[in-house]
Every structure is written in C-alpha cells, then in structure tokens.
Amino acid sequence: MQLFPCPFCGPRDESEFHYGGHAGNARPDGAGMPAEGWAGYLYLRPNPKGTAREIWVHMNCGEFFVMERDTVSHTVLSVTTLGGEHAA
C-alpha cells in the first residue's frame, strides 16, 4: 500500500484518493470555440511517462489538490492545495 500525502490530513492510504485529471486543463471560453477546441479540452491528455502534474481528491476529507508524481516510479514529488498553500 502506497501512502499519498493529503495537504490537509497528511500521509494516507492510496485507496482513499481519487484521480481527477491533469492539472492546468482550464475550461476554454466557449464563445466561437470550434469543436476541435472543445475536443482538446474534454478528451486530449498529455498522459506523460515520467513527471506528471495531476488533480487528486482525498475522498475522506474532500480536499482537492495538485500532486506532482512520477508515473514510472510512482514517487510523489510534491503536493499543493488548490488554494496555493504548500504542505507535506
């Protein structure tokens, strides 16, 4: 069992967390956006091999945060609350 650091609760079992998508995928301004633009936002993913910046939620406390992680070694590099405060 891997431990993930929740910025609010500290280290907890991986099974308490849920993956929410890659970080920085901002919803585009809808006006005049062609279908391809929407497809990019909705479906296209960087899916990197190596360092990834991802949104996760700790389901127990409800905290959403950014986790920087290595997708090959599964090492956690950093976690940041979405409010911008640093922890763990």
Binding site: K49, S73, H74
Partner: peptide
C-alpha cells in the same frame, strides 16, 4: 492510478 509501471499495486 495513472501509471507506466508494469507492476500493479
């Protein structure tokens, strides 16, 4: 967990 590790948790 998104992963490129051919290992499994």
């Amino acid at each position: 967990i998104p992963s490129y590790a051919q290992r499994g948790n």
